[in-house]
Design a protein around this nucleic acid. Sequence first.
DNA 1: CTGCATCCGCTTCGATACTG
DNA 2: CAGTATCGAAGCGGATGCAG
Lengths: 252, 252
Amino acid sequence: MPDIRYAQFCPLTRAVEILGERWTLLLLRELVPGPQRFSDLKARLPGVSSSVLAGRLARLEDKGLIAKRDLPAPAASTVYELAEAGRALRPVMMELIRWGMRFLGEPCPEERFEPRWMLMGLQTFARREATPTCSLRVVIAAKPEDFEIHISGGPEGTDVSVLPRPSQACVRTEEFDLLLLANGLLDVGEAIACGRIRVEGDARAVAAIPRLFDFRPPPDPESIHRGTPAQTSMERVIPPRNSRNKTQGATR
Amino acid sequence: MPDIRYAQFCPLTRAVEILGERWTLLLLRELVPGPQRFSDLKARLPGVSSSVLAGRLARLEDKGLIAKRDLPAPAASTVYELAEAGRALRPVMMELIRWGMRFLGEPCPEERFEPRWMLMGLQTFARREATPTCSLRVVIAAKPEDFEIHISGGPEGTDVSVLPRPSQACVRTEEFDLLLLANGLLDVGEAIACGRIRVEGDARAVAAIPRLFDFRPPPDPESIHRGTPAQTSMERVIPPRNSRNKTQGATR
DNA sequence: CTGCATCCGCTTCGATACTG
DNA sequence: CAGTATCGAAGCGGATGCAG
């Protein structure tokens, strides 16, 4: 399994040499909430073949993104978990999630959805200015097993985690309704009224959810500075040199 | 050229469906400093085939990442430039550059280097706390033509741009010596003394370069919170359930 | 000369089967 | 459960051709 090489001395090239293959980033995303076994990964990545998955895991372990660990006591199995270089990908994934939101659209009927995929999304769009006063446990009902997300006040605003927190309230949702609640597409009171979500404990913790997140994309800097965005580029306007003429060495 | 589809309702999946193919992100990187023609892109991306490049360009235009524009007056040619969704990739690229720095290492002899690849790198590692007092024009000597980068004080600390700025000083460097200067691997006085760089104007602008950038990677949050990073994961420790036993529906 | 389209040999991928 | 082996299909790199 030879490495992909672009033969460029550039940090972005180094990154895509490691991350740019099929499945690689999605595989790493699966390891963010916690360690996973080979079969867990294969089951949650529909369409990936065993050999490709094994190859990816070996490469990523070799590069120091993930580590293989043997479970000790009862479940004698091996799990894969993020290593330091893999954990350092969090800002990359969050920016990819922020950017990818504009293409999310509506879910196609044949598309899968795993509740854990919301974890980093909620972390990405959590407002740093807003801190929840009540700690909330969210149970997302899912088919093989439920998935829990804890929303509480942290040192840097809203804290979203899978780690257990003491919670004053608990809400049970289906599918990606938590996402709809967070960006205001699903009204909290309405969802409670029609039984779409079920709340126990302090209901204000659930009512506060829409204020804790901000899904709006950042403004385009080009449309701020200049008037006609269609005429301008990101940095320079045009390179009007045609091929190699006499102005070759002119450094102004 | 059918789209890559992972059949997952997830913003990260949407992002890698568009960006995850070979060459795509490197192609977009080439458009960051300004518009480029088809042949420019093909020349600067060694190894890419015409058909793949044409396919990528068509797809990216279709998705709204880039736009095709016909040059008006003398050079009757078409150029590709970033559109809004392509410009919005800047944070993604910067985080990929920040992450990829740990794998940059030394340049292999067969690896290419383009001065423009340093632009976003310098922007990524520019310290927000430090603002240069003198504006500096950097001319990087390159083979087909030189490349210019302007380092000046901006509203958000150090400003690095290809756009022309009024400059109090000018320095001429070779290859990636600007990178070495910025992270302190090449001493300014020493480089001047041995003729490796040539300075005109206020020499303090060049001497200030190492203070304007910080290439250190951010600390691993895991190694801060806990004592034994080898034993812990990013979020949860282990999922010790073995296959499907009776605890399937227990939500604690 | 630029901007592709076409063809060809090679690598990679996806699906299934098989094994320790 | 954790992979390895196999095989047809698709994607890719390189060369060539061709229209504007």
